[in-house]
Nucleic acid binder design. Structure first.
Lengths: 148, 148
DNA sequence: CCGAATCCGATTTGATACTG
DNA sequence: CAGTATCAAATCGGATTCGG
């Protein structure tokens, strides 16, 4: 019974929206993404969250500033990008470097681990982008079968 | 302004929770996951959704029945698994085969495209599982820096 | 200019119950 | 067995506000 006791409906003092689950620590066991609570599953949920893939992919170019990332990733809000980057930084996939200039200058880049992950994602993205015609066709066929 | 006019707070008659965005059709353009509305981005959001990765990974073993998938993917609800599989089927990554017996017998398997995607995901998962010790350490360091 | 914190509606999620 | 329906709760995400 190490689950949270936080039963307060919608606690506003909890800025823990992306990838900050606090289930049990499974780090002693063989990592298995299929087991919930496993660290690897937690990391997967951050990486494979709505903005995680795109953030990691966008960082392959090298070091990128916050607003440059924001512009590149169409549709992301400041809040979600910020949260996503924080979660990725916490898991050691991304580094955040602050240059104390005026105006401030913050750059994000990949760690070695982040680069490995990003490489896998790049291959995933390539497959998906190349498959667009096929996917569109599949969708049309599916929707024709199930118009309901 | 082609966005939905569905302003009714929480319309229960809308079973469109996974991967059924209805933005514009970008299929004429060069696919770019960074552009919202692009088909490739829609597919990515299904694949890289909370349960998409695990479902595709779980299907690498071959043809699997619904409840077997459900047992393998710890924590998934029937509803989400069902929605995820439907979305994946719609995009042509998964095939659903029904055997009209009593009791019913439904098997899911990967298409050729689904297999390609799943291969990328397998590599991603391997990286993440192998990195668990590193990630756990990174988390501790991060939390020590920012206990607030 | 960079980004974090707060507020709050909308969407997604998941337990449970129910159907073919 | 393989889902769908229902509803409450959690999460998301945009707008705005605040701080360095």
């Amino acid at each position: 019974m190490a689950r949270t006791e936080n039963v307060e409906t919608h606690d506003p003092a909890a800025p823990r929206e992306v990838g900050t689950d606090d289930l049990e620590d499974f780090s002693e066991f063989a990592p298995d993404v299929f087991q919930r609570g496993c660290s690897s599953r937690q990391t997967l949920e951050i990486v494979a969250a709505k903005w995680g893939v795109l953030a990691l992919a966008a960082l392959r170019d090298g070091s990128v500033r916050f607003n440059a990332l924001r512009r590149k990733i169409d549709g992301v809000s400041e809040k979600m990008l910020s949260q996503t980057l924080q979660a990725l930084e916490r898991d050691g996939l991304v580094v955040r470097e602050v240059r104390e200039t005026i105006p401030p200058h913050v750059e994000y880049s990949l760690t070695a681990l982040g680069t490995q992950v990003s490489d896998s994602l790049a291959s995933l993205i390539r497959v998906i982008e190349d498959a667009v015609p096929e996917v569109v066709e599949a969708r049309e066929a599916y929707d024709a079968r199930k118009p309901a």
